[in-house]
Nucleic acid binder design. Structure first.
Lengths: 160, 160
DNA sequence: GTATTTTAGGTTATAGCATAACATAAGCCG
DNA sequence: CGGCTTATGTTATGCTATAACCTAAAATAC
């Protein structure tokens, strides 16, 4: 995993958005997929915050930006982004978040702060390995995973 | 974890229900909580199958058994069971399943078969440890986890 | 053993999350 | 440019979940 700041660190957030969009363009170009206006705007909305947004929250922002205001508008864009690893669904929250390292890691591990709703992705490999081992012992073949932890980020821990 | 059969093994399933109910009674007695008729029936419904059931599916079965047929009837019973570790919510499926080892393991790891919908709980400790380590590196304190894998169980793998 | 408090169950209503199905428009390619 | 494919817009609906209020049953206090 590249050494990017995680959501809990103070960082120059303007890079998150610009980098994210640039990387998305690169990835989609390779796959001959189009980053259409709605998709681009949707990704930008997710990249703007290090937290998960509900589909209807995204939809409202899309509507403000002049796109359609019916649920499928948001769900389709989100589905596309998830499919291409540019965003993830956070199942615990029924919400979506931009992927912070779309090139490298398609088995995300989420840390969800219940204090400030910040969301960080963290090193998946050791966790994935442990899960694969446990699954293998049961004769089970893992295809997709959701690994999420709810708790307190460093800042909220201090505040508490 | 006691050496019980997991969902993917062939086993005498009648024990699952009777044992599950007996253990629930023991656990709740210690906590001075009541296993009322709806709660008991709900647990029994979940224990009857090694898969996750949607709340409305549980509700239908409760209604058949003579209990109320409004959503809160099912949700309240399910919430109670989850709270006391007798059932779990499977977030990937928005559904509920009986806990297979309610005394010992309150951080379940689920293996969900996409072929037959069977659901197994597996050894949580190593996975939990890896997750805790990753979280700790980010300064994050884990309070609750959801760890779920989607894939193929041994039988469905052969069938495929 | 009856009154009081607490806990649980029932019901109505509504909120929040998600998708099916169909119509229109925009890019792609012969 | 005509037909194909992909994407967007819209209507309608289904599934998941909870708030709020009322009644009943159990625990506890007297």
């Amino acid at each position: 995993m590249p050494n990017q700041p995680n959501a809990f660190d103070t960082h120059d957030h303007s890079h998150c958005t610009t980098d994210g969009l640039a990387r998305a363009e690169g990835i989609l170009a390779l796959r001959k997929q189009r980053l259409t206006p709605v998709r681009r705007q949707t990704l930008q909305i997710l990249l703007a915050e290090h937290r998960a947004l509900g589909a209807y929250e995204v939809l409202d922002k899309l509507a403000e930006a002049g796109f359609g205001k019916q649920p499928p508008v948001a769900y389709r864009a989100l589905e596309f982004l998830v499919e291409h690893g540019l965003a993830h669904k956070v199942r615990r929250l029924n919400a979506f978040a931009a992927c912070m390292h779309p090139e490298t890691d398609h088995a995300p591990v989420f840390l969800i702060c219940r204090g400030c709703n910040a969301l960080a992705e963290t090193a998946a490999e050791p966790v994935r390995a442990a899960l694969d081992a446990a699954a293998h012992a049961a004769g089970f073949t893992v295809e997709r995973t959701s690994i999420e932890a709810l708790g307190l980020c460093p800042k909220c821990k201090v505040a508490a």
